[in-house]
């Protein structure tokens, strides 16, 4: 009896040890395990950063507008060719609004899935990878301009996950996601509808009831990019 009992205890002890080790080496804390005050402090800090971000983005948009106006005033001094070339380059860089025929994709988390909850099934949420796959597909279809929740997608744009939040160009975007693309090609709409594309997302959308709709639009309008450009390491050759 005592040998059997000891064996049971040893086995249970080892198992508990393994689970302790696995739990603490997982390396990813559950959101809900933060003490309430730490969580509140985090939320306050994030809010402060986001408020500041909003102010800075408005400033950038205003400054770009002021530069445009000032250069128009200088038309007598500046070459018209150079000014129009500058405008072309600005459009190519995503710094002007883009309009035209296009596609609108609406995508959201499964109804009832709460991103803040620790018990949420990740497959029922739109993931950063889903948005990356959609943008990649739109790019293969020669979309001339793309935006997610009005956040312009540039060649250097990165779409990343921070916990259950999604950042586009390091700006928070939240569901429902509206992905808009300017494109003349019906081919793109067909590709998005093709069963062999975005297979994982389409499967999850069906399984978890995630809203996912595609609409062809005769007119879409995308706001200019109002973020930063990093050119600290790149040097242009003459």
């Amino acid at each position: 009896m005592s040998v059997r009992l000891s064996t049971i205890f040893v086995v249970l002890g080892v198992l508990i040890g393994i689970f302790f080790a696995a739990q603490f080496s997982t390396g990813i804390p559950l959101d809900g395990t933060y003490p309430a005050d730490q969580y509140q402090a985090r939320q306050n800090l994030i809010k402060d950063f986001l408020d500041e971000q909003g102010i800075l983005r408005n400033q950038i948009a205003n400054l770009n507008g002021q530069i445009d106006e000032q250069q128009k005033k200088n038309q007598a001094l500046l070459s018209k060719t150079k000014l129009s070339y500058r405008d072309e380059l600005k459009a190519a860089a995503g710094l002007t609004s883009a309009k035209g025929r296009g596609i609108e994709i609406q995508l959201s988390d499964s109804p009832g899935a709460n991103r803040e909850s620790t018990g949420v099934v990740p497959e029922a949420l739109v993931q950063a990878a889903d948005l990356r796959d959609i943008v990649n597909l739109l790019r293969t279809g020669s979309a001339t301009a793309i935006a997610i929740n009005n956040q312009r997608i540039l060649p250097t744009t990165h779409i990343s996950a921070v916990g259950n939040s999604i950042l586009v160009n390091n700006f928070y975007v939240a569901p429902p996601f509206v992905i808009t693309a300017v494109s003349d090609e019906d081919f793109l709409y067909a590709r998005l509808n093709d069963a062999t594309t975005l297979m994982d997302l389409k499967k999850r959308a069906t399984q978890f009831g995630m809203p996912f709709t595609l609409t062809l639009r005769s007119h879409v309008s995308l706001s200019p990019y109002n973020g930063d450009f990093r050119l600290k390491y790149v040097i242009a050759r003459p």
Binding site: I46, F49, Q53, L56, S160, V162, F171, D228, R230
Partner: peptide, 23 residues
């Protein structure tokens, strides 16, 4: 996607705002 934590989240926001200020 990479595993992330509170520190990383705040660092991203801080760096973004610094970059926007530079812009």
């Amino acid at each position: 996607d990479s595993a992330s934590n509170m520190f990383r989240e705040l660092q991203v926001l801080r760096d973004t705002n610094k970059s926007l200020t530079d812009e």
